[in-house]
Every structure is written in structure tokens, then in C-alpha cells.
Simulated assay, not measured.
Amino acid sequence: MSGSERHDGRGRLGSILSNLAVAVGCVLFLGAFAWGAVVYKPYTVPTDSMTPTVNAGDRILAERIAGDEVRRGDVVVFTDSAWGDVPMVKRVVGVGGDKVACCDKDGRLTVNGKPVDEPYLRAAGASSFATGSSASPQNFTAEVPEGQLFLLGDQRSTSMDSRVHLEDPGHGSVPRGAVEARVDAVVWPFGGMIGRPDAFSSLPGGVSSEGPLPLQFGALVAGAVLILGGAAYGPLAARSARRTGRTKVSAGAH
């Protein structure tokens, strides 16, 4: 095989690998983007009732889920006519059959008599509750009807949540069907993933599993790397093959 033929072969191989990388990258990138658009919906948080977990004006991504997928500890987006018939963001602390109360002698929320440590009530680096020494400024007790959810804001001193509706039918709870989505991440300003609280994991039903957002993000990044890398590799491989061919031709001439 002549040097020219070897050069052409290497050039074609580089072009094939480059095109393959770009094609796979496009599939990953566009597939992850489409998957995310189907699974997730963006929202803007309207109030500071969920501070410090999410703040007023934050842009969040919430996974579209059915009401029966909701677990204690989830931060959810829901709409209920008794709460103003507009999308609201709160944390689920009780499900059907639970007795939710506050506060025990240590100022903690209890679910079915079990104290719940709520680290999400503290600002980053703080050692005490954001609202003071207890999980709620006022004491309350509520029994959650079957098929309902009891919701509180993380900013317990100002949040208008289930405590405000205790005298309503359902003791302040909302139907599971009112839930539109579960909040997985704060995307602007970047705050990262919203974890599932360990405190609820020992209760019946446990906590929900993490959503697919990290996998989707990984596919987006991998796709972008393959597209950029593939686009750059083709010309570099062809240039290298030409340079090698010229060197061999020059050496043969001597």
C-alpha cells in the first residue's frame, strides 16, 4: 500500500470516527433535553415561605408525578381552591392516617408520636431552627384524612400553610390529586438538588427516590462533549494524516 493510500485511509477513518462521535453526541444531547422537557416543568417560587430551602423568585425544576407517588418530606407544587387556586410550593409532613403535632418538649414536629428532626429549617451553617427554638411558633395537632396531605412551609414563622386551614374540612390537608409535581432542584440561582429528608425514612412508606435529573444532566454533558470533541477530531486527524504523508514523501525523495 502506498503512502498516499495510507494517508487516505487514515483520513477516512478520522472522518468516520468524528461523524460517529457527533451523531452519538446529538442523540444523547437531544434525547436528554427531550426527556427532561417531558418529565420536568419549570416554576418560579412566588413567596419566601420555603426559605431557606428555596427563596422567593428562585427558578425550580419539578418532576411531574401522580399524587399517589408523594411521600413525606417531598417539596411539592400543588393547586387547591381553598388555598387560592394558584400553584403553591410546600413540604409534605403528613399523609393520610397520620397524626401531625407540634411541638414536643424539644420543639420538634412529631408524626404519629415520632419526633422529626428537620435540618432543612436551618440556614446553611446554622445550628438552630430558622424560626427560633421550635419547629413552629404555635402549637397544633391535626389528623390527616385518607387520601390527603398535610403541608408546611420551611419558613415556619411566616408560611401560610396547613396550620392556617386547621378549621377547614380535612384539618388543613389537601387532596393528593392537587399535587402537580415534586421539586427536585433549584436551577437559578444555582442551588443544586433538593434532597430527601432522612428523618421521614423510618416512617411507613419511607421517602421518595431521587428523580432522573442527574442522569439527564449527565447525558446532556456527555452529548455536548462528544459533539465538540467529534467536531474537533475530524479536522485534526486529517491534518495529522496529511502531515505524516508529506513527511514520508519528503523522506522518500531523499
Score class of each variant (00 low, 15 high):
Trp188Ser: 15
Cys103Pro: 03
Gly192Leu: 05
Ser128Pro: 05
Phe190Thr: 00
Ser133Met: 08
Gly191Arg: 00
Asp168His: 11
Trp188Thr: 02
Ser159His: 01
Phe129Met: 11
Gly125Cys: 09
Ser202Trp: 03
Arg196Gly: 02
Gly191Met: 00
Ala124Trp: 10
Ala237Arg: 14
Ile194Phe: 03
Gly223Glu: 14
Arg122His: 14
Ala237Gln: 11
Lys105Ser: 13
Val187Ile: 13
Gly211Trp: 12
Pro119Leu: 05
Ser208Tyr: 09
Ser127Ile: 09
Ala219Asp: 07
Arg243Cys: 08
Ala231Asn: 06
Val183Trp: 07
Gly153Asn: 04
Ala124Leu: 12
Pro115Thr: 11
Gly125Pro: 10
Ser201Phe: 01
Val164Ala: 14
Gly206Ser: 02
Thr158Asn: 04
Ala142Trp: 12
Gln155Ser: 12
Ser157Ala: 07
Glu167His: 11
His165Asp: 04
Gln138Phe: 12
Gly107Val: 00
Ala232Asn: 08
Gly230Glu: 12
Arg243Asn: 13
Val164Pro: 00
Phe129Gln: 03
Ser162Asn: 03
Asn112Ser: 13
Phe217Met: 12
Pro197Ala: 01
Ser202Glu: 13
Asp198Gly: 14
Ala219Val: 07
Arg239Gln: 15
Pro115Ile: 08
Glu118Gly: 07
Ala199Gln: 06
Gly177Phe: 07
Ala135Asn: 14
Ser209His: 08
Ser128Phe: 15
Asp198Gln: 14
Ala237Glu: 10
Glu180Leu: 15
Glu210Lys: 08
Asn112His: 07
Gly211His: 07
Leu226Ser: 03
Trp188Leu: 12
Val207Pro: 01
Gly147Phe: 04
Gly229Asp: 10
Pro175Cys: 05
Arg108Val: 09
Gly147Lys: 08
Thr141His: 05
Val111Pro: 04
Gly125Gln: 07
Ala222His: 02
Ser173Phe: 09
Leu203Thr: 04
Arg156Leu: 01
Thr110Phe: 02
Arg156Ile: 06
Pro145Arg: 12
Pro197Tyr: 00
Ser208Pro: 04
Arg182Ser: 02
Ala185Leu: 01
Leu236Met: 15
Phe217Lys: 13
Pro115Cys: 02
Gly229Leu: 07
Ala130Asp: 13
Asp98Lys: 05
Leu166Trp: 13
Ala123Ile: 00
Ser134Met: 13
Thr131Pro: 06
Phe150Asp: 01
Gln148Phe: 01
Tyr233Trp: 15
Leu215Thr: 10
Pro214Ile: 01
Gly172Val: 10
Gly218His: 06
Gly97Ala: 05
Ala124Gln: 15
Asp168Phe: 06
Ala231Leu: 04
Leu166Met: 03
Ser134Lys: 15
Asp198Met: 12
Ala130Trp: 09
Leu152Lys: 04
Gly195Gln: 11
Gly205Phe: 09
Ser162His: 03
Ala123His: 15
Asn112Cys: 08
Val144Pro: 09
Pro212His: 10
Glu180Ile: 08
Arg156Glu: 04
Val164Asn: 13
Glu167Tyr: 06
Ser201Ile: 02
Asp104Ile: 08
Thr131His: 11
Leu228Lys: 09
Leu121Tyr: 15
Pro235Phe: 05
Asp106Leu: 06
Ala185Phe: 05
Ala199Asn: 05
Ala126Cys: 04
Ala199His: 02
Gly223Arg: 13
Leu215Trp: 15
Val144Cys: 15
Gln148Leu: 01
Thr141Cys: 08
Leu149Asp: 11
Leu213Trp: 11
Gln148Ser: 10
Glu118Leu: 07
Ser157Pro: 00
Glu180Lys: 14
Arg122Gln: 08
Cys103Ser: 09
Pro137Thr: 10
Ala181Ser: 13
Gly170Trp: 04
Lys105Met: 06
